[in-house]
Amino acid sequence: MSEHKNHISSYKSQVIVLLSLIVLTVLTVTITSVHLGPFNTAAAMLIASVKATIVLLYFMHLKFDEKIYRFMVALVLAIYVVVIIITFFDNLYRP
């Protein structure tokens, strides 16, 4: 974690990030209003994950920070996903 000069995000890039987030939000509302069965939830979650990734990378600056932060975030999220999967070993297979 060596210190290096801070990256300064431009105003323009932040506006672009916001616009893409809003587009994705509108998209998710539109998609879920069409009846796709279980794919609705999958699509909504997928879009939410994309949005979250954008926020993490740009607004929360992970893209420009030292690798260790990205590594830590990935690790924490991975552990959390594994915990959910293991919990569902119970609920999926309960008689």
Binding site: T25, T28, T32, S33, N40, A44, M45, A48, V55
Partner: peptide, 26 residues
């Protein structure tokens, strides 16, 4: 300011998931 910003983005991040999970189940 950066840390305050990080916290604020976290609040946003959580809402990004709350919104489809509660409002968009159709």
């Amino acid at each position: 300011l950066e840390n305050g910003g990080l916290y604020w983005h976290l609040v946003d991040l959580i809402w990004i998931f709350l919104f489809p999970l509660f409002y968009l189940i159709h």
